[in-house]
Amino acid sequence: MTLTLEKSPLTEAAYYILLSLYEPMHGYGIMQNVKVMSSGRVNLGPGTLYGAISSLLEKGWIISAGESDSRKKEYQITEFGKKAVDCEIHRLEELLANGKKITGAKQ
C-alpha cells in the first residue's frame, strides 16, 4: 500500500465516494448515497465504482471495514483520505471563488 497525495483534481466519482465513506458503507450503499447527495445527477455505474474503490484502497485513502449485516463488504475513509478531501475542497473553493468573481462582475 502506497500512501500518496497527488495534487491533481479528484474525479467526481472519487470525491463522492470519499464523502460517502465518512460512514462505513457497502458498494450499493455508495451508489444510492451518491445519487441522493447529487439529487440524481451522478449515477455511478458498478464497473466505474469498483475500479474507483480498488484505486482508493490501493492509495490507502479508504480501507475495508468488514461486512455489513447483509454480508456485503463495507469500506471506510482513512485519515489520509480525509486529507485528500480537504485538499479537494480547498481547490474547489478556489475554482468557485474565481468563477463567481469573473462572471459575477459581468452580470
Binding site: T11, E12, G51, A52
Partner: peptide, 12 residues
Amino acid sequence: SGPFELYTDIDS
C-alpha cells in the same frame, strides 16, 4: 431498478 450502465465516466 433503473438503467444498466457499468461505466459512467470517461476514465473507466
